[in-house]
Amino acid sequence: MSGMVEKRAAGLWLTHAGLILGVALIGFPIYLAFVASTVTQGDIIRPPMPVVPGGHFIENYREALVSGINAPVWQMLVNSMVMALGIALGKIAISILSAFAIVYFRFPLRHVFFWLIFLTLMLPVEVRIVPTYEVAANFGLLNSYSGLILPLIASATATFLFRQFFLTVPDELAEAARVDGARPMRFFIDILLPMSRTNIAALFVILFIYGWNQYLWPLLITTDPEMNTIVMGIKQMFPSGDDFANWPVIMATAILATLPPVLVVIAMQRLFVKGLIESEK
């Protein structure tokens, strides 16, 4: 009996050891980036670089935030924040309205609209790069927040998620609202919206990260460094010739680019997992 318990205890320690190894391997790239953001350029260009943090944290981050390389990083952080919030809130707003229309009304061409929205799943920005860029350029949206946000704001996934949720809302609620003579929008604002709170929050986490991490679209439409987002701006900090890249400042920027979405995921872990698993159903 005791032999079996010992064997299980050994297995448990082995499992812990395996997980710790996994955590360490997965965390290593970001740890090394952090170390690089706390040392000097000289420490890095004479390899091997140190593997413990140095004493230049404040000066590297100050240099990145205040002056950056093409544009100050604080400016890029603001741009990323506007873009991520605009995409997340915009997607939620237009999706919840259209899901409400599709579930709670009967009108001509309802199914056509439903399929049109569904088809957007098949049109990621990556496959319609040039023509979408031309449309944005024709509307004068280059180097603007609207240009960063609008073309990415339609989402079949969010519409479906709200549709699925509305279908589970008991009919009695709408019935009662109708008997009371409530207008549809009153029902939407007073009953449906509060009931959707958790879904909205879960979706917000996923969409905020989606918006923050966009790369190709900002790369195309923000040619002015002042409008760059931080995720796309990092690559622009590399010199084009054979010069050494300013690694401490670049790595400080990489850490700053990673911090907001990582904090959102960790702080809202439960909602994040719910949002991730439900939005893929």
Binding site: G22, V23, I26, P29, I30, L32, A33, I209, W212, N213, Q214, Y215, V231, M232, I234, K235, I250, A254, A257, T258, P261, V262, V264, V265, I266, Q269, F272, V273, L276
Partner: peptide
């Protein structure tokens, strides 16, 4: 184990 989800592919590339 879940935080790398939040790291943009472009940032992962730089790392």
């Amino acid at each position: 184990l879940i935080w790398p989800y939040a790291v943009a592919p472009a940032v992962a590339g730089v790392l």
